[in-house]
Design a protein around this nucleic acid. Structure first.
Length: 764
RNA sequence: GGGGGAGUGGCGGAACUGGCAGACGCGCAUGACUUAGGAUCAUGUCUCUCACGAGGUGAGGGUUCGAGUCCCUCCUUCCCCA
């Protein structure tokens, strides 16, 4: 949608109320807020929590002068005495009843205007407040004051009750609305230590803590700024309205029910039948699934299912004529449970085979993009809970119990551990750099000749060695639409349209034969890969060139898995060299007996690698795992060059290295494993066990720092204690220099831990 | 507008709970071997400085013996908004 219009057809887009199908998403709101059984990333838990948006408060009923009830939800019932007007969503049922004849035209115009806006536009803060008085009044149930009822687009019919009590002294949006339309403002919370607030003069709403004023029985109470009953003023207000019988304590959620209806062909049919008498029944289990008809006519208007008589016309459970529902389901429906179907894709008696479910569920590790935080990843949780309560997992639970697994909480959540991967994006591409000549027409150039310049020719122009000829346009193609090139003019940095006429002479050196305008390359920013943008990288070609293991290892090495980034294959050669080196090292065989020294060193390097690779894989840090393996390659090669590594130590080092590589380059590791004569399969061997004693260094570098900055280093024994380390540090030339004969203020010993070596910090 | 991320060399990226910033790799430079090198090997490669040293993780402040990491203000940018 662009400017309120459909981007393809240019039709205006407006919002209409429709009858559609929903899932009761809100039913599980509280359970979905409980993340305690889950090992999920903190940002995802925060986003889901905010999305569900639980707020504590009260529902309060206002009566209109005509006797109609308007229910509102408020998190601040304590500010009820400051509610000086009400605002309804333009779509609210009561609007037509409240609107007086004088206001009718203005109200209807406003409603029509609101229907053209998106929700994001409507709720944006900081934009001009708009609204219309309905002409009607309601009675504030605690002050019994007559207050005007307005409609405004910032109130959503889909949120809460579609109506709000406006407290301009305590809510900034209400305040701006009141100021703009000259509505009454009554302060009810007086911030402590501030001059008394006056509704006529206050500059902005006060939403913070203070003391209650102008609030009848609440006067003098503390408002501590907390939410819900933890705030004394709110607790008192809830009790008061309950006693008056005008309201009750309540919890509201931002989360709304899940709209699953789509008025289009591509989706699973909603298995519902409308009977002649207007009642609804669901399609019996033995007739499921309802399948889409294959022979629909795509006319471009309306839902093709609605025009397909054979699909629509059916019979109900009593054999009487009935109509099928023609809405289809949101595609999130399928993505919410596909992983259950994966367990047994050919099982046709149920969504999944309970035997398989008992073995595999719940999913141990799930990876998915963070962009799905509040959509797929929340829908899936909801879906799982709904299936659980429908009894879909009951058979699996029984089987699970029979195998000694406790099914009690096994089906509460679909995926126990979640990690978010990033996305590899399309690479940036520079557009062709062209020189175009022809006829100027204002800012535009009607080109009779366009030539793509070589890198060399480009440099001549870019460096200023040569100025573009008069009337010519020289620069990079930023965008192309049909036969109009948008060229970034080198001379002034402005975008200049270049229209390529049909008879124009086009010269693209990289593409032999006669050229056409479609062959010009325009600039591509870094963005998601997509066919329509033409920036897709085909892994098949890379696999054909380098092999599957190399491409796999490169993808793991070249990017931060959790972040992704623009595609580039510049450093794939580093992975190719690594695998070449390993291949040759292993196949060369042991060079000889080696030395004890070399054996110890190889064991040390191998065990350091075992630690690092194991740790990295557990943290989904695949690039550092491969870096550790490359380091091991470097270390072993150095030992081989020195001639100190050989014999049994060589065998062991190769074995450990291949085992560590197995998850990363499964085919190469298996092949080398087999050529070493080791038993099939490498993927069924135990992971190498880390031995801290073998990984330990004999000597370490003690870093001496001055106020946290390194100034010297000294080699010391690995197990050095605090006193010895301080003495050794103070004896170094660097320490002597910074002390310059004086005494240090403090000497701090930082003990080593893990792979971090100890340090001494001298404070001067 | 709201919610959630991310900013580190020429480049991709390391740095576990505050402890040597730049691991590993690409690229680049110099040298070796070569008829040749877009192969291979060796050495070097954050910046400034002949050096000694000093500075440095988007900007500015703060906490700390010590900050890429924690706190505050701001800038840029990516994702999501049923």
């Amino acid at each position: 949608m662009i400017d309120g219009k459909d981007e393809r057809l240019g039709q205006p887009v407006v919002q209409k109320l429709m009858t559609q199908w929903f899932f009761r998403y809100t039913r599980y709101a509280d359970e979905l807020l409980d993340f305690s059984p889950l090992d999920w990333p903190e940002p995802i838990r925060i986003m889901q929590t905010n999305w569900i948006g639980r707020s504590e408060g009260a529902r309060v009923v206002f009566k209109t002068e005509g006797g109609h009830a308007i229910e509102v939800f408020t998190t601040r019932p304590d500010t009820l005495w400051g509610a000086t007007f009400m605002v309804l969503a333009p779509e609210h049922d009561l609007v037509s009843k409240l609107t007086t004849p004088e206001q009718k035209a203005a109200v209807e115009a406003y409603i029509a205007d609101t229907a053209r806006q998106t929700e994001i536009e409507r709720t944006s803060e900081g934009r001009d407040k708009t609204g219309v008085f309905t002409g009607g009044y309601a009675i504030n149930p605690v002050t019994n004051q007559r207050i005007p009822v307005w409609i405004a687009d910032y109130v959503m019919i889909t949120y809460g009750t579609g109506a709000i009590m406006a407290v301009p002294s305590g809510d900034q949006r209400d305040f701006e609305f009141a100021r703009k339309f000259r509505l009454k403002i009554v302060p009810v919370v007086q911030p402590d230590g501030q001059p008394p607030l006056d509704g006529a003069t206050m500059a902005e709403a006060w939403a913070g803590a203070g003391t209650m004023i102008h609030s009848g029985p609440l006067n003098g109470l503390v408002c501590n700024g907390e939410k819900g009953r933890k705030n004394p003023s709110i607790a008192a207000a809830i009790d008061h309205i309950a006693k008056l019988g005008v309201g009750r304590e309540s919890i509201n959620y931002r989360l709304r029910d899940w709209l699953i209806s789509r008025q289009r062909y591509w989706g699973s049919p909603i298995p519902v039948i409308y009977r002649e008498d207007g009642t609804i029944e669901t399609v019996p289990d033995d007739q499921l699934p309802v399948e889409l008809p294959q022979d629909v006519k795509m006319t471009g208007t309306g839902n093709p299912l609605g025009n397909h008589a054979a699909f629509v016309n059916t019979v109900d459970s009593e054999g009487k004529p009935a109509r099928r529902e023609t809405d289809t389901m949101d595609t999130f429906m399928c993505s919410s449970w596909y992983f259950l179907r994966y367990l047994s894709p050919h099982y046709d008696a149920a969504p999944f085979d309970p035997e398989e479910a008992a073995y595999w569920l719940p999913v141990d590790v799930y990876t998915g993009g963070a962009e799905h935080a509040t959509m797929h990843l929340l829908y899936s949780r909801w879906f799982n809970k709904a299936l659980r309560d429908l009894g879909v997992f009951d058979d699996a639970a029984e089987i699970m119990a029979a195998h000694g697994r406790d099914p009690e909480t096994a089906f509460d959540e679909p995926m126990k551990l979640l990690r978010n991967q990033g996305q590899v994006l399309g690479a940036e591409r520079r557009g062709d750099f062209v020189i175009a000549t022809g006829q100027r027409a204002g800012n535009k150039l009607i080109a009779s000749r366009v030539e793509v310049l070589t890198a060399e020719a480009r440099r001549v122009f870019e460096s200023g060695q040569q100025a573009p000829p008069d009337g010519a346009v020289v620069g990079e193609i930023v965008k192309r639409t049909e036969n109009i090139l948008n060229v970034l003019d080198l001379t002034d940095g402005q975008l200049r349209p270049v229209e390529v006429s049909e008879r124009a002479e086009l010269i693209i050196p990289g593409i032999p034969g006669p050229n056409n305008v479609n062959q010009f390359k325009h600039h591509l920013d870094v963005q998601r890969m997509s066919k329509s943008k033409g920036n897709v990288v085909n892994p098949d070609e890379l696999v054909a060139q380098y092999g599957a293991d190399t491409v796999r290892a490169y993808l793991m090495f070249g990017f931060d898995w959790g972040k992704g980034g623009p595609w580039n294959d510049e450093q794939i050669s580093g992975v190719v060299r690594w695998l070449h080196d390993v291949w040759e090292m292993v196949l060369a065989g042991s060079p000889g007996a080696g030395t004890n020294e070399g054996a110890r060193a190889a064991g040390r390097k191998a065990h350091q690698a075992i630690r690092k690779v194991t740790d990295s894989l557990e943290h989904f840090s695949f690039n550092t795992a491969i870096a550790a393996l490359m380091t091991l390659r470097n270390d072993l090669r150095a030992l081989l060059r020195d001639g100190t590594l050989g014999g049994a130590a060589w065998n062991e080092a190769m074995r450990d290295m291949l085992l560590l590589m197995a998850p990363i380059t499964p085919h190469i590791a298996e092949e080398l494993w087999s050529r070493r004569g080791l038993p099939y399969s490498i993927h069924q061997q135990a992971w190498p066990a880390y031995d801290a004693a073998r990984a330990a260094e004999d000597e370490i570098t003690l870093v001496i720092m001055k106020n946290g900055k390194p100034v010297d280093r000294v080699q010391v024994a690995a197990g050095i204690g605090e006193d010895e380390a301080k003495a050794a540090a103070l004896a170094t030339a660097g320490a002597q220099r910074i002390l310059n004969g004086g005494q240090p203020q403090r000497v701090i010993f930082i003990p080593g831990r893990g792979t971090v070596e100890p340090k001494v910090n001298i404070v001067v």
